[in-house]
């Protein structure tokens, strides 16, 4: 049997990244400030995790202006969703095997 741990994604190791992806799985897109409030993080902390997810093409960023205010919104890419589902399934398997 394949070891379920092999499907766990290293990129989702941190609880913060899990939180970011959880929110993006059930919302089409979320802006930076809403994400910050939801997870109770500081700007820098959230930004660094988002940067990492962006580099791995797990989240996609779009910047636009609402009126004169810049707004940065994030969404999960298809690839990101697939990876997250894989990760979730692995977590569940791990629990069932315990």
């Amino acid at each position: 049997m394949k070891n379920p741990i092999s499907n766990l994604q290293k990129v989702f190791e941190s609880r913060i990244r899990l939180g970011i992806m959880s929110a993006l799985m059930v919302n089409d897109m979320i802006d930076f400030n809403a994400l910050k409030e939801l997870l109770g993080l500081t700007d820098g902390n959230l930004a660094s995790h988002l940067k990492a997810l962006e580099q791995k093409e797990i989240v996609a960023v779009s910047k636009q202006f609402i009126g004169r205010k810049p707004s940065t919104t994030y969404k999960a890419t298809e690839q990101g969703r697939d990876l997250f589902r894989l990760h979730l399934a692995a977590l569940e398997k791990l629990i069932n095997n315990q």
């Binding site: 959880s22 979320i30 979730l88 569940e92 791990l94 629990i95």
Partner: peptide
């Protein structure tokens, strides 16, 4: 993994 899944569920619901 239990705590992870719980945190995931909680954030999905809250968001």
């Amino acid at each position: 993994p239990n705590e992870d899944l719980q945190a995931i569920r909680e954030i999905m619901e809250r968001s």
